[in-house]
Amino acid sequence: MANDILVFGEVRGGGIKKITKELIGAARRISTVAGGAIDTALIGAGARAAAEGLTGYGLRTIVVAEDEALARYSTEGYAAVLSDIVKRGAYSYIFLGATAMGRDLGPRVTARADGVMFSDCVDVRMEGNRCVARRPVYSGRAYVEIVRSGERPNFISIRPNNVAPAEPSGGSTPIEAHASNVMRDAIRAVVTEIFPLEGGRPDLTEADVIVTGGRAMKDKANFKILEDLADLLGAAVGASRAAVDAGFAPVAIQVGQTGKIVNPKLYIACGVSGAIQHLAGMRTSKVIVAINKDPNAPIFERATYGIVGDLFEVVPLLTEELKKVL
């Protein structure tokens, strides 16, 4: 078998999404050992323009499909096109982002291609002649390393920020238009409107990142420094019960046993002591950063990373340093 790989890239605002380069990086890891070519498929409005940005990455072909009917994402439209491309290329591995689109599309196309899919992987590598994917299970309380049985097309979705993005490697990749025959009327579930989060922050219970202030915020106005950090990270702002009780924050953003129960990937607790009532609401966060003056604050017992210091000094610095790298 040829071990060819298809990378399903994602387009945003006429440019290429970062995950696409990470997927190419992952595909290279496989192809350098297993051989085989890497193709990339880009679907949707602006696909061709975005494809131009990928021509120097040592890909065999970049397939683009940007018909009218594909302007906006739809599971059925995109699945039809991607299935066609997968079928035609007879790929061994198809890499997708573990993004809203990849998670929605991947299993549907897998089913159509009678393939097998590993979702939300954090790492891929070759082991002998097999592509091994590592993925978290039980919400990250364990990991499995998994391989396909047999020769079915293997779809692998990879979480953003886990594999280093590929660097350009020179050369020039041809861009090939895929003539899809997707009929708009045949799509049964259509996106009719998009509500961007612009300005507004995500809802606490759904946010991937949360910045929370405790009693040590001292004043309502001081939440500004948390908001600055939150805006940078696309995060929601929360407050401990103590901060709410003291009138620094509205009860709507209270995190804890009697407030919102949250489960973000990153939780930054600023001046929160970590009483059980608060911990009960956020202790399942994947990564907890605690910033507190008191080295004995119970929050440090739960935190992943801790800084003992004045939050009014640390938080603005953190915003500043993150700005430099994001």
């Binding site: 364990a142 990991y143 391989v147 049985s149």
Partner: peptide, 21 residues
């Protein structure tokens, strides 16, 4: 048939405990 095989199970990478920076 089962379309995949789990080669191995691994504990989470990070041990518990707080890294004080």
């Amino acid at each position: 048939d089962a379309r995949s095989t789990i080669l191995r199970w691994l504990p989470p990478q990070k041990s518990s405990g707080c890294t004080m920076v």
